[in-house]
Protein backbone atom coordinates (compact mmCIF):
# COMPACT_ATOMS: atom_id res chain seq x y z
CA UNK A 1 0.00 0.00 0.00
CA UNK A 2 2.66 2.50 1.09
CA UNK A 3 4.82 1.33 -1.79
CA UNK A 4 1.96 1.94 -4.23
CA UNK A 5 1.39 5.48 -2.95
CA UNK A 6 5.12 6.12 -3.11
CA UNK A 7 5.30 4.81 -6.66
CA UNK A 8 2.30 6.87 -7.71
CA UNK A 9 3.88 10.06 -6.40
CA UNK A 10 7.34 9.12 -7.65
CA UNK A 11 6.04 8.57 -11.16
CA UNK A 12 4.69 12.11 -11.22
CA UNK A 13 7.19 14.24 -9.28
CA UNK A 14 10.28 12.03 -9.22
CA UNK A 15 10.99 12.15 -5.49
CA UNK A 16 13.58 9.38 -5.41
CA UNK A 17 16.54 11.75 -5.94
CA UNK A 18 15.22 13.88 -3.08
CA UNK A 19 15.00 10.83 -0.84
CA UNK A 20 18.50 9.80 -1.91
CA UNK A 21 19.78 13.21 -1.00
CA UNK A 22 18.18 13.20 2.45
CA UNK A 23 18.75 9.64 3.53
CA UNK A 24 20.95 7.73 1.22
CA UNK A 25 24.46 8.81 1.98
CA UNK A 26 27.37 7.44 3.89
CA UNK A 27 28.33 8.71 7.32
CA UNK A 28 32.09 8.72 7.93
CA UNK A 29 33.64 6.93 10.85
CA UNK A 30 35.03 10.00 12.57
CA UNK A 31 31.58 11.39 13.41
CA UNK A 32 30.21 8.07 14.61
CA UNK A 33 30.24 7.69 18.40
CA UNK A 34 30.05 3.93 17.96
CA UNK A 35 33.61 4.03 16.63
CA UNK A 36 35.08 6.85 18.69
CA UNK A 37 33.20 7.87 21.78
CA UNK A 38 34.59 11.40 21.52
CA UNK A 39 32.48 11.80 18.39
CA UNK A 40 29.51 12.52 20.65
CA UNK A 41 30.39 16.20 20.15
CA UNK A 42 28.82 15.84 16.70
CA UNK A 43 25.44 15.24 18.37
CA UNK A 44 24.94 18.79 19.55
CA UNK A 45 23.81 20.11 16.19
CA UNK A 46 21.21 17.38 15.84
CA UNK A 47 20.01 17.88 19.40
CA UNK A 48 19.67 21.61 18.76
CA UNK A 49 17.42 20.78 15.84
CA UNK A 50 15.43 18.34 17.97
CA UNK A 51 14.84 20.93 20.69
CA UNK A 52 13.89 23.45 18.00
CA UNK A 53 11.23 21.03 16.80
CA UNK A 54 9.97 20.70 20.40
CA UNK A 55 9.91 24.49 20.68
CA UNK A 56 7.95 24.94 17.47
CA UNK A 57 5.39 22.29 18.41
CA UNK A 58 4.93 23.32 22.04
CA UNK A 59 4.72 26.97 20.94
CA UNK A 60 2.00 26.16 18.44
CA UNK A 61 0.02 24.37 21.11
CA UNK A 62 0.52 27.13 23.68
CA UNK A 63 -1.03 29.72 21.36
CA UNK A 64 -4.28 27.74 21.58
CA UNK A 65 -4.72 29.28 25.02
CA UNK A 66 -2.40 32.27 25.19
CA UNK A 67 -3.66 35.80 24.49
CA UNK A 68 -1.16 38.60 23.76
CA UNK A 69 -3.00 41.28 25.66
CA UNK A 70 -1.94 42.96 28.90
CA UNK A 71 -5.30 42.31 30.55
CA UNK A 72 -5.42 38.65 29.72
CA UNK A 73 -1.89 37.43 28.98
CA UNK A 74 -1.00 36.61 32.56
CA UNK A 75 -4.47 35.21 33.29
CA UNK A 76 -4.35 32.94 30.26
CA UNK A 77 -0.87 31.68 31.13
CA UNK A 78 -1.96 31.09 34.73
CA UNK A 79 -5.06 29.32 33.48
CA UNK A 80 -3.27 27.07 31.04
CA UNK A 81 -0.62 26.21 33.61
CA UNK A 82 -2.96 25.49 36.50
CA UNK A 83 -6.27 24.43 34.97
CA UNK A 84 -5.58 22.73 31.66
CA UNK A 85 -4.47 19.11 31.67
CA UNK A 86 -0.71 18.83 31.02
CA UNK A 87 -0.53 22.60 30.68
CA UNK A 88 2.30 22.64 33.15
CA UNK A 89 4.26 20.16 31.04
CA UNK A 90 3.64 21.89 27.73
CA UNK A 91 4.60 25.28 29.11
CA UNK A 92 7.51 23.62 30.90
CA UNK A 93 8.71 22.14 27.62
CA UNK A 94 8.63 25.54 25.98
CA UNK A 95 10.26 27.27 28.95
CA UNK A 96 13.05 24.78 29.55
CA UNK A 97 13.46 24.10 25.86
CA UNK A 98 14.36 27.76 25.41
CA UNK A 99 17.24 27.29 27.83
CA UNK A 100 18.31 23.90 26.54
CA UNK A 101 18.39 25.11 22.95
CA UNK A 102 20.79 27.90 23.93
CA UNK A 103 23.04 25.41 25.74
CA UNK A 104 23.04 23.04 22.77
CA UNK A 105 23.70 25.87 20.31
CA UNK A 106 26.57 27.03 22.48
CA UNK A 107 28.12 23.56 22.58
CA UNK A 108 27.59 23.09 18.84
CA UNK A 109 29.24 26.45 18.16
CA UNK A 110 32.22 25.55 20.34
CA UNK A 111 32.59 22.20 18.60
CA UNK A 112 32.62 23.78 15.16
CA UNK A 113 34.90 26.56 16.32
CA UNK A 114 37.57 24.47 17.97
CA UNK A 115 37.62 21.99 15.11
CA UNK A 116 38.14 24.82 12.68
CA UNK A 117 35.22 23.47 10.70
CA UNK A 118 34.27 26.99 9.62
CA UNK A 119 37.23 27.26 7.27
CA UNK A 120 37.03 27.11 3.52
CA UNK A 121 34.68 26.01 1.97
CA UNK A 122 32.29 26.36 4.94
CA UNK A 123 32.59 30.09 5.71
CA UNK A 124 29.04 30.86 4.59
CA UNK A 125 27.56 28.08 6.64
CA UNK A 126 29.35 29.34 9.74
CA UNK A 127 27.88 32.81 9.21
CA UNK A 128 24.41 31.38 8.73
CA UNK A 129 24.92 29.42 11.95
CA UNK A 130 25.91 32.52 13.91
CA UNK A 131 22.81 34.26 12.55
CA UNK A 132 20.73 31.32 13.80
CA UNK A 133 22.30 31.88 17.21
CA UNK A 134 21.27 35.54 17.14
CA UNK A 135 17.74 34.66 16.07
CA UNK A 136 17.50 32.17 18.95
CA UNK A 137 18.64 34.82 21.41
CA UNK A 138 16.04 37.15 19.91
CA UNK A 139 13.38 34.49 20.38
CA UNK A 140 14.43 34.08 24.00
CA UNK A 141 14.33 37.82 24.58
CA UNK A 142 10.89 38.35 23.05
CA UNK A 143 9.42 35.18 24.53
CA UNK A 144 10.47 36.27 28.00
CA UNK A 145 7.95 39.13 27.95
CA UNK A 146 4.93 37.16 26.83
CA UNK A 147 3.66 35.80 30.20
CA UNK A 148 3.44 39.44 31.31
CA UNK A 149 4.54 38.72 34.85
CA UNK A 150 6.81 40.89 36.93
CA UNK A 151 10.08 39.44 35.70
CA UNK A 152 8.93 39.74 32.12
CA UNK A 153 7.84 43.33 32.49
CA UNK A 154 10.90 44.61 34.33
CA UNK A 155 13.43 42.71 32.22
CA UNK A 156 11.85 44.17 29.10
CA UNK A 157 11.97 47.62 30.64
CA UNK A 158 15.74 47.19 31.07
CA UNK A 159 16.17 45.77 27.56
CA UNK A 160 14.35 48.71 26.05
CA UNK A 161 16.46 51.15 28.06
CA UNK A 162 19.58 49.51 26.67
CA UNK A 163 18.16 49.81 23.16
CA UNK A 164 17.43 53.47 23.84
CA UNK A 165 21.05 54.05 24.82
CA UNK A 166 22.32 53.24 21.34
CA UNK A 167 23.57 56.46 19.77
CA UNK A 168 21.56 58.09 16.94
CA UNK A 169 19.06 55.32 16.30
CA UNK A 170 18.37 54.35 19.92
CA UNK A 171 15.17 56.33 20.45
CA UNK A 172 13.68 55.17 17.19
CA UNK A 173 14.64 51.54 17.88
CA UNK A 174 13.04 51.65 21.28
CA UNK A 175 9.82 53.13 19.94
CA UNK A 176 9.80 50.61 17.13
CA UNK A 177 10.09 47.74 19.60
CA UNK A 178 7.84 49.13 22.32
CA UNK A 179 5.23 50.65 20.02
CA UNK A 180 5.19 53.80 22.11
CA UNK A 181 7.96 56.22 23.06
CA UNK A 182 6.90 56.32 26.72
CA UNK A 183 4.79 53.33 27.67
CA UNK A 184 5.84 49.72 27.94
CA UNK A 185 2.44 48.13 27.73
CA UNK A 186 -0.28 46.90 25.41
CA UNK A 187 1.53 47.70 22.17
CA UNK A 188 4.85 46.36 23.42
CA UNK A 189 3.26 43.02 24.17
CA UNK A 190 1.59 42.66 20.79
CA UNK A 191 4.78 43.66 19.00
CA UNK A 192 6.90 41.21 20.95
CA UNK A 193 4.29 38.54 20.28
CA UNK A 194 4.35 39.18 16.54
CA UNK A 195 8.15 39.15 16.50
CA UNK A 196 8.30 36.00 18.60
CA UNK A 197 5.67 34.05 16.72
CA UNK A 198 5.95 35.20 13.12
CA UNK A 199 9.00 37.27 12.21
CA UNK A 200 11.80 35.45 14.01
CA UNK A 201 10.51 31.91 13.31
CA UNK A 202 10.24 32.81 9.62
CA UNK A 203 13.85 33.98 9.68
CA UNK A 204 14.84 30.90 11.63
CA UNK A 205 13.26 28.50 9.14
CA UNK A 206 14.96 30.21 6.22
CA UNK A 207 18.34 30.15 7.93
CA UNK A 208 17.93 26.54 9.02
CA UNK A 209 17.04 25.50 5.48
CA UNK A 210 20.17 27.24 4.20
CA UNK A 211 22.23 25.64 6.97
CA UNK A 212 21.07 22.12 6.13
CA UNK A 213 21.30 22.49 2.36
CA UNK A 214 24.87 23.67 2.74
CA UNK A 215 25.71 20.75 5.01
CA UNK A 216 24.41 18.36 2.39
CA UNK A 217 26.25 20.16 -0.40
CA UNK A 218 29.55 20.43 1.43
CA UNK A 219 29.46 17.32 3.58
CA UNK A 220 30.75 17.02 7.10
CA UNK A 221 34.22 18.41 7.63
CA UNK A 222 36.89 15.74 7.65
CA UNK A 223 38.69 14.54 10.75
CA UNK A 224 41.34 16.80 12.24
Amino acid sequence: MMQKIYDWIDERVDITPLWRDIADHEVPEHVNPAHHFSAFVYCFGGLTFFVTVIQVLSGMFLTMYYVPDIENAWRSVYYLQTEVAHGQIVRGMHHWGASVVIVMLFLHTLRVFFQGAYKKPRELNWMVGVLIFFVMLGLGLTGYLLPWDNKAYFATLVTLEIAEGVPFIGEATKTLLAGDPEIVGAQTLTRFFAIHVFFLPAALFGLMAAHFIMIRKQGISGPL
Binding site: L80, V84, A85, I89
Partner: peptide, 8 residues
Protein backbone atom coordinates in the same frame (compact mmCIF):
# COMPACT_ATOMS: atom_id res chain seq x y z
CA UNK B 1 1.29 16.01 26.49
CA UNK B 2 0.64 18.57 23.77
CA UNK B 3 -2.31 16.71 22.27
CA UNK B 4 -3.83 16.07 25.69
CA UNK B 5 -3.36 19.79 26.35
CA UNK B 6 -5.10 20.74 23.14
CA UNK B 7 -8.09 18.42 23.48
CA UNK B 8 -8.67 19.25 27.15
Amino acid sequence: PMVRFAID
